[in-house]
Simulated scan of single mutants.
Amino acid sequence: MHGFATARGLRCTGPMGGLFANELLQDERGGALVFVPLDGDARPVGRVDALVVSGAELAVGVHRGPLHTIDLTYGDLGAYAARHEIGVDGPLREYYLRSALDVARDDDLVTEVGWPIFRSAG
């Protein structure tokens, strides 16, 4: 995705991210969408398309280390949302604050994980 942006002269405005259906975490099958926030006009090419990622209220945790252990962070966030009865339907989110493009070792990866929650008016 960075190659796509660079080839078209678009500037990345933040970390890569992803939106993932709950089923992907629970059943290892489900919808996934990855994105790079860009400044400029990204025209559709093949499976790459432009979209606006809508805002959401999230319980957030930071996962440090390889992605094959990120399920531990998801487990903690899911347990927190269930314990406080604040979880809502919606995609799970990941923002790759330090991705494989930034570090040489998987142990140095930093991923922000977001679990959708509701926010009371109070």
Rank of each mutant, 00 (worst) to 15 (best):
L33V: 15
F20Q: 07
L38I: 13
R98Y: 08
G3S: 09
R105N: 02
P15F: 04
E112M: 08
D108C: 08
D76N: 06
A100H: 07
M1W: 08
V113Y: 02
V36A: 15
D49Y: 12
A82D: 15
R11K: 13
R64Q: 09
L19M: 09
H68R: 14
V103Q: 11
Y74L: 05
Q26H: 03
V48S: 06
A100E: 12
L25M: 06
L77V: 03
G18H: 07
V52E: 14
Y96D: 01
D107P: 00
A21P: 08
G17S: 07
L33E: 09
V62N: 07
R8S: 06
V36H: 15
D106G: 03
T73A: 05
Y80K: 04
S120H: 06
D76P: 00
V62S: 03
A21S: 13
E94V: 07
A50K: 05
H2P: 09
R98I: 06
D39Q: 14
G87M: 12
L67N: 03
D76E: 15
C12W: 03
R105C: 01
E112G: 02
A56M: 10
I117A: 00
M16H: 03
D71Y: 11
R83G: 06
Y96A: 00
V45R: 12
G114Y: 11
D49P: 00
R43P: 10
A81I: 01
Y95C: 00
T13E: 13
M16R: 05
V62K: 05
V36W: 11
T69D: 14
S54M: 02
G18K: 06
V62A: 04
G31L: 04
P66F: 04
G114I: 13
L72D: 12
L109M: 14
G87L: 10
G9N: 08
G61W: 07
A50C: 10
F35G: 07
E94C: 10
G55D: 09
G14A: 09
F35V: 04
I70L: 07
T13Y: 05
V34F: 14
I117G: 01
A32L: 15
L25K: 04
E28I: 03
R43N: 13
R93M: 15
L58T: 12
G55W: 00
R119M: 05
H68N: 15
P37W: 11
R47P: 01
D39A: 14
L101V: 02
G114T: 15
Q26L: 12
G14S: 11
G75K: 12
Q26A: 03
G65S: 05
Y95R: 08
Y95P: 00
G3F: 01
G14F: 11
D107I: 01
G75T: 14
H68W: 15
G14V: 12
V48P: 03
A81W: 02
P15T: 14
L92V: 02
E85L: 10
V113K: 03
S120G: 01
L24R: 04
D27K: 12
P66A: 13
R11Y: 01
D27V: 08
L24I: 13
S99T: 03
R119N: 07
E23D: 15
M1I: 09
M16A: 15
D39T: 08
M1P: 04
I70N: 00
E85H: 12
R29S: 13
A42G: 05
A59I: 10
L97E: 06
L24T: 13
L24P: 02
Y80S: 02
L77M: 10
V62Y: 07
G46V: 04
S54P: 03
R43M: 11
D108F: 09
H2E: 14
P15H: 13
D102R: 11
I70S: 09
